[in-house]
Structures are given as C-alpha cells and as structure tokens.
Design a protein around this nucleic acid. Structure first.
Lengths: 358, 358
DNA sequence: CGGCGCTTAGTAAACGTTTGAACATGTGGT
DNA sequence: ACCACATGTTCAAACGTTTACTAAGCGCCG
C-alpha cells in the first residue's frame, strides 16, 4: 500500500527533495543512487530505496531531461498504425525501445508531407533520441531537400534521423538508412514463377515515382530480362497498395476479355488478397487456374496459402532503434546505410504451367 | 533554407533567449507571444515570429513541462500493436490526440502485469495527461487493487487513468471507463442465428475469468434462454482469442465425430478465420454447410464475407482521449463510465436452416 | 496638468533534476 | 607524524521555460 509522509495526502507528488529529507541525505546522493552509476555505501543506498518506496516517488522526466540526462524516448512516424506493414515495424521499434529502457512516441501523418513536418517538429521539441520515419514515399527533389533539413535540424538538437524502408540521401546528410531488398525479393519471386513455366505474368500495383513499388517492379523486370522474356508494359497495371485496388485491377482486366496471363504478381499481400477475391468471383481459382504471389508476408498471407516474399518488418524496426542508439554513443556523425535481406516463402498459390518449356 | 545567427553553426539548438536577443525583446515577451494567450503589439509579434523562423527555434518540451505548462502528451498502453483490435483503438487515440495538438506515447506489455506496472510508472514519469489502458484482462481482486493504485497515483500526479474495454472499478476510484457492449452484441448475433432456425450453435473461445470472452458468452447464453433453448455447456469450447485457436478448436471437434452443430459463433473474427479454414479442410463450406459468425468487424472480416458484430474500435480510442482531456478541465474528480453500442453487420456467412422451426 | 486606468514589456523567481567541484572522512605508505 | 589518496557525500550552479509581479508609456477625464 502506498503511504505518504507529508500531511497533505494526495496533493503534489513527491520530489527528490522529499526523498532526500525522508532518508536524511542530500538530494545529490539520492540522484546518484537512483542513477545507479556511482559508488555508494550500502547503508545509504538502502535508506534511500526505502524512502523512495514509502513515498512512491517517481522521477520527473521533464526535470531529468532538462538537467542534461539524455532523454529516454524514441520516436516513430508512420502514415497509419492500422496498416499491417507499419504496425509490424512499429512493433519492432517498440520492442527494442522497451528492451533498452526507452519509451516510444508515435505519430501518424496520413501521408501528408505537411503533417509529417509538423510531427517531426513535435518530436524535436520532445528531444527524442532518434526519429524514425518509415515507409513508401515519392522520391523527388522536394523530398530530398525536406529530409536533408530534418536530418540537419535533428542532428543539431542531438537527435538522429532514421529512414526506414526509404531511399537514402546524399552521403553528406547525417541520417541512418535501414532498407530491405525490394528488388531482390521481387526478382526471386518472379524467377519462381518463370521457373514454373509461367511467361505472361501480370504485375499489379505499379506506381511511378513511389520508391517501394518502383523497386519491386524493377526486380520483376530484371527477372524477365534474365529469362529472355520481352518487356510487355501491358502486363504492368497501375494501382495503389491496397486491397480494394487489387480487387479493382483484376476486375477491370477481366471485364475487358478473358485472361491473357497465367500468373499474377501482386505488389503486396493486400493487393494479392483483393486480386484473389476478384479472380474467384470470375470463376478462376488460385492456384489451379491462375498462379498468384504477393509481397510482405503478412500473417494474413498464411490464411490464403499465399506464396510471397518475406519482409523482416519487425527486425527493420528493431535494427533502426538499435543502430540509432549505438551510433549516438560514438557520434561519428555521417551517413550509414543498412540493407536487410528478403526471401521467398513458398506456400500453395503457384502451380507449374502444364506443357511448360515456353 | 535554415539560417543561423550565431557563428558556431550546427552547435547547440537555439533557446528562447537567443530568440529574444535576436528580436530585441525579453524572453518573457517571446514566451507569451508563442503561447498565444496574451495581448501583444503586432509589431513586436512579427519581430518575434521572424526571429523564430530565422533561428529555426523549437521550444524545449522538457523545460516547458517543468515550468508548469501542462504536458502535451497522451499515453496508451496495449498488449501488442500488431493485434488488429489494439491497433484500431490505438489509431483512434492517436487521431484524437493529434487533433488536440497532443502527441501520443505508446507502450506494450505483452500481457504481463509486471510489465504493465513498469509501463504505467514510465508514463507517470513522463507526466502524460492521461494514461489509457486497453483490453481484455482477468478481473480478480488483485486486478482491482492494482488498478486502484494506478488510478490514485496518476490522479495525485495530475494525470488520469482511463480504462478502455475493461471492467469498471468502484465509484471511489478516480478512473474513467470507456466500454463497449459485448453482451448486447453477442445477444444480437446469437438471436440472428436463432432466427435463421439454428438451434445447435457452437461457441468458440470461452475463457473463464477473462472479461471480454466472459461478456460475450453471457450474451450468447441470454439469447439462448430467451429462445427457450436449454443451456448445453458441451457447446461452449474453451480457447484463446487467436486464429490458431479457432483452427484448433474446430479441428479437435470434428476429429471426434461428425458435427453436432449447424452454426458457429466465434468469439472474435480471428477465431472465425481459423475456424473457417478448419471447416473447409473437413469439406464443410461456409455458409452452405455450416453458418459462421464472428465478433469485432475487423477489415479482414469483409474478406471472408463474415457476418459479425461491429465494435467501434477507433471511436473507443477517440472517446477515451476526448473525455479524459475535457474532464481534466473541470477536475470533478470521481469516476465516470461510458458504454458504446455495438451492432451486427450482416454479410454472407449465415444460411437459414432448411426445415426450420426446430 | 496631474493622477488614473489601460496596454504592453521586463524582472526574477520558481519548476525538479543532474553533475562538476569541493569537502569530509578514513587508510596506507614513508 | 605527515602526505597522498581513495571513498562517500554535499554544495551549488546549471538546464530552458512560464508566470506573478512590477514598471513604463500613454491617452483621458476631472
């Protein structure tokens, strides 16, 4: 049970001064003992700890932050927290942060660059140890300039910008970049389809200018080229990375005639789920009639037996905070770039094409 | 582009003193103008704003918090951020927080009460305006006592405990409770099945002691009673609220003989998804052979055309912060209790039983 | 024309913690 | 006996804001 020394119970919370008085030592001693990082006599130590317990004292993070002790928080900025991709990265960030005794501040932007700016400013106010920006984005000049400013402003404030699954900036920009291999994964899974004899492979979810779909479509094209397949732009369908878009794209394609493809490479698992539904509604079964693969390896991919590319979402988040924190110690200053691997997960959504060999 | 007045560019970030000097006014003036809540001459105002812009000044949240200005953050504690239920509530919290200009601190516990305690302490250190605890929990004496302590400690620190989808405590405990109607929803959807002629309805996911499954099974029983159906405990299957559990429960049931039920009420949509898969693997199709309903109305429920109970996840989160913040103004002090409604969403996973009427 | 109220700006005292430097002790070497 | 030294503790000065109190300028009425 919580007891309180002062007469006015329930009033203002106990300060370090109250603890010091209660234990009969100075505030400096209390501070040092609580920080842990200092020698102290066992007797003093136990006196202080008892006072802390009896007064139910918790340190004031604001005062602590002000007085110089490095802030104990890590910030993550995503477009939305319900999107599985972001949720998993956020989970990784939160896990690693908790492991290091930090807590995690989260902001969402809903995609708007101005909201992103506002959120970065907030995190700057809050003196987060690092600010992790995650996700797909258009990679134009405006973007690079904006990120450069973020990076410099954060570095000046003793913080650190981390780009997670976003394109790197110049080497003179003080940012940490954690990517995963979109192109390699797309290459591998396209090869998987090609090896099974498929030649006409529909790519769903191209989106010019955006980094993630861009890298995936590049892997797709590379694989086709290595199998000496002609590049047919008609097989690349534009669309956003959402379930409803996958449904729409297949729907439109099938309404204009019978399928001119034997396999579908969906830009991510959500698109794959939507595409699968549209295919079924047209009487086409996966994988018997059409083969289907996705990208991301969300838990829901297992539900529909989808062969897909595994993305280490949580590890992405964990690595981001781990590297950011260890880099802060030796403030080497400049850019750093990490690329995490991806690999395909074979389930049951691809069938070899009968009479293969062309 | 960012310019800097001091010669040592990139060193320490600008303080309010720098801004005051740059604008030729006192720090008090700058503080007041930035707070907004004070009369000031337009000329002074624009001078200050220009200095802020030129120095790229952002206030130090720690100093601000220390000096008395109320903290600008809201805390949410969930077991995991990837679980869709929590993710949606978190999204609501984050959205409303952003709307009120606050930012959102998130902690995860992975279910452990000791981690929950540690996280609450962290939030107390951080002086969050309110601490929102969300989710299913065992409702025993230890729990009530623990929550009572949280509530009092937070109240003493000028914060506020909010319980979201958790059972209320005594009226003397200074906590805000936001619930949703589990029992009513379960009653409604069970009635839906009964009205379609189903009599032997399997309930999946009972879990004694836990609040959420408990309330749902209660609604199920109430509906059966109102339709004058005998209570058959053999139709209530124990299991956790996970997809794999849904799969397991159906699997085990069907391995021990042919189905002795015509409909399944899954404790939530995840269980429903797992159950559906197990049913299909046994050659039973939904809804033709077996009717299936769920609970939660996650986006994935639409994917499998599942009739389910809609839970206002996001609104839960939004309401939590809205009420918490407005209650802080008039510190009326004591408990408050809000119950949000649920309603059923009819899709295509239920068929009327042929030859109904028993 | 002097005092009064009103608006606007400045002064300085908090807020609760950390931390470098100083200060007591006791301990061992010479 | 004295000095150097290690150990454990205290003093006091930051850290960057906010805000009650105070002061200055100025128009207005008596």
């Amino acid at each position: 049970m919580v007891r309180r020394a002062s007469s006015d119970d329930g009033e203002r919370p106990a300060t370090i001064r109250d603890v010091a008085a209660h234990a009969g030592v100075s505030v400096a001693t209390v501070s040092r003992i609580l920080s842990g990082t200092y020698p102290s006599a066992p007797a003093t130590r136990s006196k202080v700890m008892r006072a802390v317990r009896e007064l139910d004292y918790v340190a004031n993070a604001n005062a602590r932050g002000l007085a110089g002790a490095s802030s104990r928080s890590v910030a993550i900025i995503v477009t939305s927290v319900v999107s599985p991709h972001y949720a998993h990265v956020a989970q990784g960030v939160q896990t690693q942060a908790a492991l290091e005794g930090k807590l995690c501040i989260i902001g969402t932007t809903n995609g708007g660059p101005e909201r992103e700016l506002a959120t970065v400013q907030l995190m700057r106010q809050e003196h987060a140890e690092c600010v992790i920006l995650v996700g797909n984005v258009v990679n134009d000049e405006a973007y690079r300039e904006r990120m450069g400013e973020y990076a410099r402003a954060l570095a000046a404030a003793g913080s650190q910008l981390v780009l997670c699954g976003r394109p790197a900036l110049g080497p003179d920009v003080p940012a940490l970049v954690i990517e995963y291999d979109n192109t390699g994964g797309a290459y591998a899974i396209t090869s998987h389809l090609l090896s099974a004899g498929h030649r006409r492979i529909l790519f769903l979810g191209r989106r010019d200018g955006y980094t993630t779909p861009g890298a995936r479509v590049a892997g797709y094209r590379n694989a086709l080229a290595d199998f000496h397949q002609p590049h047919d732009p008609g097989l690349e369908v534009d669309g956003k990375m959402e379930r409803s878009e996958g449904y729409r794209m297949i729907r439109q394609r099938l309404e204009s005639g019978p399928p001119d493809f034997t396999a579908v490479f969906a830009g991510n698992d959500l698109i794959a789920a939507g595409a699968r539904q549209a295919l079924r509604e047209h009487g086409l079964r996966v994988p018997d009639d059409i083969s289907l693969v996705g990208f991301d390896d969300l838990p829901s991919a297992a539900d529909i037996d989808l062969t897909t590319v595994h993305v280490p979402h949580e590890e992405l988040g964990r690595t981001a905070v781990r590297l950011a924190l260890e880099r802060r110690q030796d403030k080497s200053g400049m850019s750093e770039h990490v690329m995490l691997g991806t690999h395909i997960i074979v389930r049951d959504s691809v069938r070899p094409l009968r009479g293969a060999g062309q």
